[in-house]
Amino acid sequence: MDDEARLVKAMGDLEEEEVLALVGEMLSAGIEPLRIIEMCRQGFDVVGRRYEQREYFLSGLIISDEIFKSVMELLEASECFRPSESEPLGKVVLGAPLGDVHDIGKNIVATLLHYSGFEVVDLGVSVKPSQFLAAARSSGAGVVGISALITMAYEPLRETVAAFEREGLRGKVKIMLGGGAVSQRVCEFAGADAWSRDASDAVRFARKFTGGEE
């Protein structure tokens, strides 16, 4: 097995030390950082598949998120790092709704989307409907993702969707909901386009909404 295959495997197996050691070796050997990112992304896909197949659970996604962050720190510290100039698959605005300060689920979705090729505009927690609207307008994002963990978020979710409706943006922007508080009933109440409690579905939805394959 060559270094690249080992890196994909180590990432897929969530072996943090091995991933970081391999990245260090590959950098020393003059491998392009963008190539290393691509290998890590492939490993990340393995993690995503294992999560979908219920071989991994949320704790696994959290670890993969942390490993990827550490890899990026290593790469960004290297002299030869240049950010990717390739076009993103699409832009996604993310945030937790007004009144909800939980961010773990949103952060995982942000990482999954980012390494799946999307540009993510992360607005953080307790985001007002007007802030979602402004971010979608200024970024030109075609997808908004809202992660809610508390039942008090139902009304802010509906108000956010209604704000896009009022401003005539609903035809251009798809809105997806995630987090422990959402359900089909909540999705219908809010008037959103899709929902899931499964973080990996966010990537599937975003691909579909931006015209790609699910």
């Binding site: 969530l14 943090e16 696994g60 959290i62 942390e66």
Partner: peptide, 10 residues
Amino acid sequence: GLVNFSRDLK
């Protein structure tokens, strides 16, 4: 915390 504990589990 979820992040630390996820690492501990592994």
